[in-house]
């Protein structure tokens, strides 16, 4: 064991350096949130000089009505992810396993949506939602987000279903199982790693989404967290400490959620690997 442990030292060294690079900006944020506002941009020490301004967090918490916006963000993110997983496991399975005329064209069509210039379609999207009566609703945020994730999700699910041996499908079919039953009894349980990956990726996109809610929401009580953080950006000049404290409060639930989700993520990965 010893020689192999020694051989792993450079491995750990490289990973630690990379880890430090990943961690540094977050530490910078934490430092900035605790500093005196004047101190943030003038000194590049990670730690505050002198007083640690924990009071900034109290101010931000009180000003922000954090819990309310938190619930809004949870609402939007949860239903977005649910929608994505329901819609695109179904479609991804169809593209991976079923033969039907035009399936390739349809798949490529969905894939092509990935490259739709998101910024330019903002005003047309506003008009679409207006005619559907979806403006200023959370559903009006969820639907375009689900739709927007179609290419990534379909691509991943289709590829993933394809790696599952086709014999499984053939056997089940010969046993007389319906296609939907095959999908939900056999394929979905095997696709948990893919579902976990899609969930993680879209969780972030939805949680941090800024421009979409900014354009589509009018009422402040519907705002999601990033918009709430922007409400902190008041006054004659930017208060870095307040902004960073607000950003961190927004990020902490995400980090916690990640920490919790990782366990299931690993379980999903291992169960996906056992193919017997």
């Amino acid at each position: 064991m010893k020689p192999s442990a020694i051989r792993k030292i450079p491995l750990y060294a490289v990973l630690t350096v990379w880890g430090a690079l990943c961690l540094y900006p977050l530490l910078w944020m934490i430092g900035a949130s605790l500093k005196d506002p004047m101190d943030v941009m003038s000194s590049y020490s990670l730690l505050p000089n002198g007083v640690w301004h924990w009071d900034t967090y109290v101010d931000v918490w009180n000003k922000m009505k954090f819990f309310h916006y938190f619930l809004n963000s949870v609402n939007v993110t949860f239903f977005t992810i649910l929608g994505i997983n329901v819609l695109f496991t179904m479609a991804g399975f169809a593209f991976a396993k079923l033969r039907f005329p035009g399936s390739n064209m349809l798949f490529l069509g969905f894939l092509g949506m990935m490259f739709v210039p998101g910024i330019t379609v903002m005003v047309p999207l506003y008009l679409t939602e207006h005619s559907l009566g979806l403006l200023n609703t959370h559903l009006g945020l969820i639907l375009p987000m689900v739709n927007g994730s179609a290419p990534m999700a379909l691509f991943l699910f289709r590829n993933y279903f394809r790696t599952i041996p086709h014999e499984l499908y053939e056997t089940a079919k010969l046993e007389g199982a319906g296609i939907l039953r095959i999908l939900y009894r056999i394929y979905i349980p095997l696709a948990i790693p893919a579902i976990a990956t899609i969930t993680i990726m879209n969780f972030l996109g939805s949680w941090n989404s800024l421009v979409l809610p900014m354009v589509l929401l009018n009422s402040q009580h519907l705002y999601t967290l990033p918009l709430a953080v922007m409400l902190l950006d008041t006054g004659v000049f930017r208060q870095w400490n307040v902004l960073m404290a607000g950003s961190l409060i927004t990020i902490v639930p995400v980090i916690l959620c990640f920490f919790l989700l990782q366990k299931y993520f690993i379980q999903g990965l291992t169960s996906g690997a056992i193919k017997s």
Binding site: M90, F93, V116, P117, T120, L183
Partner: peptide
């Protein structure tokens, strides 16, 4: 099999028709 295929793809297509198509064509 083809019918099942269309059925499974339908919700994704419906969503696109509802929210994406007009937006994209307009743009």
């Amino acid at each position: 099999e083809a019918a099942a295929g269309y059925l499974l793809v339908a919700p994704a297509i419906l969503l696109f028709l509802l929210i994406g198509l007009f937006t994209v064509l307009f743009s």
